[in-house]
Design a protein around this nucleic acid. Sequence first.
DNA 1: GTACAGGCAGTAT
DNA 2: ATACTGCCTGTA
Length: 301
Amino acid sequence: MIKFNKDRRNCLVDLQSLHQSFDPIVSINSGQVFLWEKHCDSWYGIHGERIIRLTMVDGHIEFASFPEERSCDHKMFRLGDDARSIFEQISRDSYVRGLVKMYPGLRLMRQEPHQCLFSFMCASNTNIPMIRRMLYNITRKFGKPAKVDGMEFFTFPSADDINRAGIDELRGCGLGYRARSIKAAAIAIVSGQIDFNALTRASYAEAKKELLQVYGIGNKIADCVLLFSLEKLDAFPIDIWIARALAGHYKWLHEKKFGDKITPGQYEYLSYSAREYFGKYAGYAQQYLYYHMRQEAGKKW
DNA sequence: GTACAGGCAGTAT
DNA sequence: ATACTGCCTGTA
């Protein structure tokens, strides 16, 4: 079964119909949500070269990818994860335990690394509607058109596609100063300086070090890519929302204060502490904290 | 007008 | 190490 909240970006999916034994529902995390749209009874998303469709049919979900790819759903929604074990781990913390019950289906979604990286680079110092606009423009300008259900979508361009574009063309997508960073990231990927497969096999520390070499990639963006795309489930990205959530609920963080910006020192302290505290699935805990903060704040996606 | 939005890099202490 | 600043662009 698939459920849609009133706030249209939040998409909940029943996993039982997707052959997951443990828990019922999955929700799309913030990173990938940028390019999802609802048309009629279906949600359509861009996943690299593919268009994804989720449809509610008689109480269960129908998953489709265009072009079709076997076990695409399995990969995207992390159906191979041992959800029970993960929830047990992060539920050692009583606050997160409450959130796991409150949002029983929230999960991580596995994203295409380059799409994830470019998306979070667009997200710096701006808001969701702007991010959506930038990415929408990028897909229309550099992606390939793909027709699904009579509607025209655009795939997410490869690093190569982006690299072929000039910085001015990128700016034309409304990226502003981010154009330079995105170009630099595209070059890093195309040149092989950043090798996502290698980084997936590498340790958290090693992979993060490599990502930070690239112009435009800092702590936050690196941790997002590590968590959402490079299998580092202990990565714990810190943004101002998470920082507030941590400060509001965890006494052991109170000695450190912060204003509306997070300094590198604070980032290091918060992220490291959270990884130690929540354990090897800290990133899952992060998603619960993040999601709850956004719900509380009543932000519209 | 001006403050602000889910960072980052460069420069100066 | 830490603090300060500029940066595109749109909205309130």
